[in-house]
């Protein structure tokens, strides 16, 4: 199970957001750090085809994100910074079942997947509630449950704790640590990457450090902050 970037460049209008990035991800816990505008969110979005490379190739298990977007998104779940943006259906149960339904599962199959995912986050008692009326922490849990209902091999988190208070941020990171999936966390909160196997530092659209967390974080703190 690998994710590969081959000489990837992403250009928005006249600006290169990522420049000639080549990487291979196979570890279970990978962090991506960098300042605002460094290209880390674009790198995250490339992984499940939300953004396509201007040149180069991104593949997940040899599936090109450009040609096999839907198949790639089955394997790579994406958790957005703002859980409100991820909720697309009126009730909790319907929202959790949305991904499996969109990927072609029948209504009972999708409901079973959704039930199992909601149970993991103690949301079973809220299935009929309006998703929009949940608290911030509950919405975050629902967003993750909706991704887990697809049973992806990888989950990409884009700034998962930016909108949370310290208590909820700790809880979110504990949840992420326990996930059986391979995880890529994009953040500028370096303290969240404890126990990770690899950290990539981006600056101005290029990979400037790719190392063990303690070395990469030291580089980031000393050079870029």
């Amino acid at each position: 199970m690998t994710i590969t970037f081959e000489h990837v460049t992403v250009r928005f209008e006249t600006q290169d957001v990522l420049r000639d990035v080549s990487l291979t991800f196979a570890e279970r816990r990978i962090g991506v750090i960098g300042n605002n505008g460094s290209g880390k969110s674009t790198l995250a979005r490339l992984i499940n085809g939300l953004v396509l490379p201007t040149s180069g190739r991104v593949s997940v298990d040899d599936l090109d994100t450009r040609k096999h977007g839907q198949e790639v998104r089955k394997r790579v779940g994406f958790v957005f910074q703002n859980p409100d943006a991820q909720i697309v259906m009126p009730t909790v149960a319907e929202d959790a079942a949305f991904g499996p339904r969109a990927h072609g599962l029948s209504v009972p199959e999708a409901a079973a997947r959704a039930d199992a995912a909601l149970a993991k986050f103690n949301l079973s008692g809220m299935k009929g509630r309006a998703a929009f009326s949940l608290s911030g922490g509950e919405k975050q849990s629902l967003a993750l449950a909706g991704v887990l209902a697809l049973d992806p091999a990888w989950i990409v988190f884009d700034e998962p704790t930016t909108m949370l208070d310290r208590k909820r941020a700790k809880l979110a990171m504990a949840t992420i640590a326990e996930l059986p999936q391979r995880v890529i966390v994009v953040t500028h909160h370096v303290e969240l990457l404890t126990g990770f196997e690899r950290v990539i530092v981006l600056n101005d659209g290029a990979v400037v450090c790719d190392d063990k967390p303690e070395l990469a974080i030291t580089y980031y703190n000393e050079t870029l902050t």
């Binding site: 085809g49 939300l50 977007g69 839907q70 994406f78 943006a85 991820q86 697309v88 949305f98 991904g99």
Partner: peptide, 18 residues
């Protein structure tokens, strides 16, 4: 702006784009 993010979430969760 929010609509852009919502449409991105729809795609990320398997709706639409192939």
């Amino acid at each position: 702006r929010e609509t852009d993010t919502l449409s991105e979430a729809l795609v990320a969760r398997g709706f639409g784009r192939s």
